[in-house]
Amino acid sequence: MKILLILVSGIFVNNFILSKFLGICPFLGVSKKLDTAVGMGVAVTFVMTLASAITYIVQYAILNPLNLEYLQTIAFILVIAALVQFVEMVIKKTSPTLYMALGVYLPLITTNCAVLGVTILNIQNEYNFIETIINGAAGALGFTLAIVLFAGVRERLELSDIPKPLQGFSIALISASLMAISFLGFSGMI
């Protein structure tokens, strides 16, 4: 039951982008086309889930026994950076097109605050190992959902008649805020 609760909370209620406002950079940067948005979502999902698992081990097997909790941030960044490098290699091998499309935003997952956010929140909420992984996956799925929905919105915005002062990023930010408001409808569900 708790696992289901974490899933719903991560994907909808406490969506990382639309209610915690973490990871806005790729959200605005890679949401121009639907297929690259999906690719970004998959890459972040992989990194976030794996990072959750590994940081859990790092926290409870290394940092806590040695009373080095204050190294949490730097140790977690180390884990995430290594993981992103790994994902980059896999994508370069399997899909050069996606690699080109993601461009600079792929290494930037390293500094994606949503990834660091989820790993630190896992520890703060005192989740056990299974819950940690579920929370990581749920947060990542929420990220994917938001970025894919937003890419769909932006693809249609490209074709619409938009007043000149609002064209480009301004209308994108306004639509993002409207999406965030609509996601507020989930608050109070849990």
Binding site: I62, A75, L78, V79, A82, F86, V90, K92, K93
Partner: peptide
Amino acid sequence: VILGVMGLIFGAGLAVAAKKFEV
């Protein structure tokens, strides 16, 4: 030392992966 060892382990892992996924 802890951070250095962690970095080394991840680095070694990446080196292996780089060989495996070499294009």
